[in-house]
Amino acid sequence: MLTVSNVIERFKLEIITGKTGIHKPITSIDVSRPGLEIAGYFSHYSKERVQLFGLTETTYFNTKLTDEERATRAQLLCTNETPCFIFTDDLIPPKEIIEACENANIPLLKTSNTITNLMFYLTDYLEISLAPETNVHGVLLDVYGIGVLITGESGIGKSEIALELVKNGHRLVADDNVEIKEIGKNVLIGKSPELIENLLEIRGLGIINVMTLFGASVVLSEKRIMLNVHLEFWQEDKEYDRLGLDKRTKNILNSEIPSKLIPVRPGRNVSNIIEVAAMDFRLQNMGVSAAREFNERLIAHIRSKDNGGK
């Protein structure tokens, strides 16, 4: 759960009053500048949001309102759902807001940051901290700049493949358990649980620390997941995609990412296949598709044969 104290610690905010309320939860990723509310319009007051006061809000509150209006509107701003107030630009909060926050046990905070700067970084922080999250059994690596999530049943060799990819110069993000946050539609960020960060479990060898063995350049704290490679044991009676025209996806939370099904059997160099899959994914994002090009050639060849036979 995200609380006001987390925001205070992250942005080094000064507490003016309301210290007893710093453990209040923050539930909204949005922040508000309550200009309309200061002017007296409370019909759509977003009271569950962090409230920011910049020079405009503070000056209007101090100069355009009567004493009675300042006291009344300060009380209306302070609700049970309001997590905190933050005054930016080293502004001094009006005494009416200090008193209202004190009475309602709402943290009143202050920073030297500009309001534009704080809004940008605070919104980004809240989006990530409050994003929907889940855990997936698999391995996450950065392969040629592409976040590749390798999944498959236990014992198929995901960690061994990850080790080979790391030896080839790619970077490990997480092994066995991947923590995933959805910070936007089809935008998934994966990282490792702190307990197993930088570690790989190799059956018959045990736990190894890849950063200690290969250096800091082979690990990454987090990565956007762009491609899923799902491994399964080769089934002789199953027809696998040979052209690359099948469009598979994997659903994680409310997002979809492209997925490739790779059958595993002795003699196949799966790590090389994953490297090629990542490179091909990059090319497809640039509009280059070998499968589509082959299909177009095949259609053109068939048409030329048909025309020649007439």
Rank of each mutant, 00 (worst) to 15 (best):
I106A: 06
T88S: 08
K64G: 04
S217G: 09
N105S: 15
I180W: 00
A290P: 11
V270I: 15
N135I: 10
Q51I: 04
I156S: 01
D246Q: 10
V210M: 15
G309L: 13
E102P: 00
V136K: 05
K260N: 12
V264S: 10
L195T: 05
G308Q: 09
L122W: 03
K185M: 13
K47T: 15
I98N: 04
R292W: 11
I196A: 03
S304H: 11
R248A: 07
V187L: 11
L172F: 11
E37G: 04
L220V: 04
N117Y: 11
S289G: 08
A277H: 03
V143A: 04
K64L: 15
V148E: 00
E197S: 11
N113Y: 13
P258T: 08
E293D: 15
D142W: 00
D175P: 04
I16E: 12
H301W: 13
H137C: 03
S217R: 09
Q75R: 14
E275Y: 05
N295C: 12
T111Y: 11
I150P: 00
F233G: 13
R248I: 14
N62V: 11
T27M: 08
F53W: 10
I106P: 05
E99N: 08
S32V: 15
I183G: 01
G244Y: 07
R73D: 09
L118R: 00
P132M: 09
V178Y: 07
I189A: 07
K260C: 12
N254M: 11
G35T: 13
V173E: 01
S159R: 03
I207A: 09
A290D: 14
K223Y: 05
V178N: 03
M286T: 05
T59F: 12
N272L: 15
H301M: 13
R33W: 09
D67I: 09
I146T: 08
E14V: 01
S289D: 14
L213C: 13
R265I: 05
F294C: 12
K24C: 01
M286Y: 14
L261N: 12
H44W: 08
C84H: 02
L13H: 06
L77M: 10
D241S: 07
D124S: 12
V166R: 00
L231S: 03
L172S: 08
D176H: 00
T123N: 10
S154L: 07
V7T: 09
T151N: 08
V173S: 03
D175I: 12
I202W: 09
C78K: 07
E68G: 01
C78P: 12
T72Q: 13
V4E: 00
R282S: 07
V187N: 05
R171T: 02
T82S: 02
K95G: 04
L36D: 03
E127M: 13
I106E: 06
G309E: 14
R282E: 05
Q235H: 13
P107I: 02
E69G: 02
N80A: 14
G190E: 00
K305Q: 13
S159C: 09
F85I: 04
P132I: 13
D90S: 15
